[in-house]
């Protein structure tokens, strides 16, 4: 026998199920209960940076859009600083910019949308610089443990080329699954980011 480590073990994950909206976004379930609700619009009037919409659909292995999916986003501000006490960078962060969004897909079309700003570059490990990106966490019925991925931007080719995480993806073609396509129409900037859970063009998911 050896000495015990006396470590606790992480609580096992379970699927969020089809009715995840009741707890995390009650208005999508069809009722109103809390005074303050979390949403997919995470910019305030004081938020600096370029306003963008990130949108797309999440597809299952048969190519069908998932219409009961819930996503959460986490990102830095336009200067590349996270609203968190452990972000050591000597940069300002806007008071009302949490950097986190909760996003539900549309029950009919499966389209999800995040209204945010384009994040700045953030530090990576060992002096590296990470290209601008938004972290996404995806849960739904049929997903046993939340899936983590990242959204990069098609107009950041130079930064993307030296990003340590993108460069860690061995199959070069798979890196494209993490790059959202920029479109501009009527002065609005929309990045399209479709997520493929399984099969052809499967999105890269991370063990973080």
């Amino acid at each position: 026998m050896v000495q015990p480590l006396h470590m606790l073990k992480e609580t096992p994950s379970q699927t969020a199920g089809p009715y995840v909206h009741i707890g995390l976004a009650p208005s999508y379930a069809g009722f109103d209960i809390f005074e303050n609700n979390f949403s997919n619009e995470i910019v305030g009037p004081d938020t600096k940076g370029e306003r963008i919409t990130l949108q797309g659909r999440v597809f299952d292995g048969s190519g069908t859009p998932i219409r009961d999916v819930l996503l959460e986003s986490w990102q830095a501000n336009s200067e590349g600083k996270y609203n968190h006490p452990e972000d050591f960078q000597a940069k300002e962060i806007e008071d009302n910019f949490r950097g986190w969004g909760r996003i539900c897909s549309d029950f009919d079309t499966g389209v999800y949308q995040l209204k945010t700003i384009k994040p700045g570059k953030v530090p990576g490990r060992n002096g590296a610089v990470q290209a601008p990106h938004i972290s996404l966490w995806i849960v739904s019925r049929g997903i046993n443990i939340g899936l983590s991925t990242r959204v990069y931007f098609s107009d950041e080719t130079t930064a993307n080329a030296t990003d340590p995480v993108l460069n860690g993806i061995e199959l070069v073609e798979r890196r494209q699954t993490l790059i959202a396509k920029r479109n501009e129409a009527d002065g609005e900037v929309v990045y399209t980011f479709d997520i493929y859970l399984q099969g052809d063009n499967e999105t890269v998911f991370f063990d973080i």
Partner: peptide, 22 residues
């Protein structure tokens, strides 16, 4: 139909993973 077939890619944690919403 909702499970990835590829292995998850392990990445070293950066500020992006060490921080989160408060």
């Amino acid at each position: 139909l909702r499970s990835p077939k590829n292995a998850l890619l392990s990445i070293d944690q950066s500020l992006s993973e060490l921080t989160g919403p408060m």
